[in-house]
């Protein structure tokens, strides 16, 4: 098993499948128990080092570590020495001195987990770095696809919206392609990085017209789009964005019967996704949250437990 999880590219098909299989076993093991806890990581310390507010990701990792009986330390950039200007390196050395077995890091700067991995001995898990990657999100998305549709290999997946600023999109392109899915990126050209067709995984397709794409997909994954992007001239107005790229009831009905709708959250209801779609039975949004805990348990188990 790998030592760190910094990028979805760290996972080949075999390793990724091992993570998904392990997550499924975690689900079963927990379901059978009265006390929803496994003793696997007892005595190990997991630090959640969060330089960005992200309650949902942090509590998901926290729940995952606690269900494996690890000790969890939450280190938030707000109200800590970080806000007093301590460098990432000094923070890393501090965590190192405390004996962290794993550091889960969320950081606004792309690549920060790579640097952290050079400064600590424990495992580093990238929980989202800038506009780079968010590999456990891709794993939980793949897990959700597998549990809903039975497989990832051969699926046609459309990822729609602000790909340029999306770490979720980058990790998903890498992981889903490795697992044999066909990924199509859809959005206004301003939000699709130039050359992304070949930059991450060969076979990635780029399309500008959502309506042309929808009838042929098994999965449509909507990305959060910040309204403020229009101030930087990425699109003229929120209304126009929604009209061209928002997933509403009419577009939902254009999807094949079996197709599912995903969103990494938090949603901008009314912007990229209409309430009708978000709350429809074909939406997996709440399931994704639940699967996030299982997948993160699997990753922590494989990175930490596997090493012992």
């Amino acid at each position: 098993m790998i030592r760190h999880l910094l990028s979805a590219a760290d996972l080949d098909a075999g390793t990724a499948t091992e993570v998904l299989d392990t997550a499924a076993r975690m689900d079963e093991a927990i379901a059978d128990r009265e006390v929803k806890k496994l003793p696997t990581l007892r005595g190990r310390t997991v630090v959640n080092l969060f330089y960005e507010d992200s309650t949902r990701t942090r509590i998901s990792f926290e729940a995952a570590a606690k269900r494996l009986s690890a000790d969890v330390i939450n280190f938030s950039a707000k109200g800590s020495s970080v806000s007093k200007g301590e460098s990432l390196k000094d923070t890393a050395l501090t965590l190192q001195a405390m004996g962290a077995d794993a550091v889960v890091i969320r950081h606004p700067a792309s690549g920060a987990p790579y640097q952290l991995a050079g400064w600590v001995n424990g495992s580093v898990l990238n929980a989202g770095d800038g506009t780079h990657e968010h590999p456990t999100q891709a794993l939980l998305d793949a897990y959700t696809m597998r549990s809903r549709l039975g497989r990832v290999d051969g699926l046609s997946v459309a990822i729609v919206g602000d790909v340029l600023h999306s770490r979720v999109a980058r990790s998903n392109v890498l992981l889903l392609s490795a697992l044999g899915a066909k990924v199509t990126l859809v959005g206004p050209p301003t939000l699709l990085p130039l050359g992304i067709e070949d930059a991450l995984a060969s076979g990635t397709e780029v399309r500008y017209d959502l309506d042309e794409v929808l009838p042929g997909v098994d999965v449509v994954m909507m990305l959060r789009v910040q309204r403020e992007r229009m101030e930087d001239a990425y699109f003229p107005s929120a209304r126009e964005y929604t009209r061209r790229y928002g997933l509403d009831g009419a577009r939902l009905r254009a999807l094949p019967e079996h197709a599912i709708v995903m969103h990494p959250g938090p949603m901008n209801r009314g912007m990229e996704i209409s309430p009708e779609v978000a709350d429809s039975p074909r939406s997996t949004i709440v399931e994704q949250v639940a699967n996030g805990v299982s997948v993160r348990m699997a990753v922590l188990y494989l990175l930490l437990g596997g090493a012992k």
């Binding site: 792309s110 690549g111 770095d129 800038g130 506009t131 780079h132 990657e133 770490r167 980058r170 990085p193 130039l194 050359g195 992304i196 070949d198 930059a199 991450l200």
Partner: peptide, 9 residues
């Protein structure tokens, strides 16, 4: 270029 796309920089 393709490297900046991949690295998210």
């Amino acid at each position: 270029g393709s490297v900046s796309v991949r690295l998210g920089l």
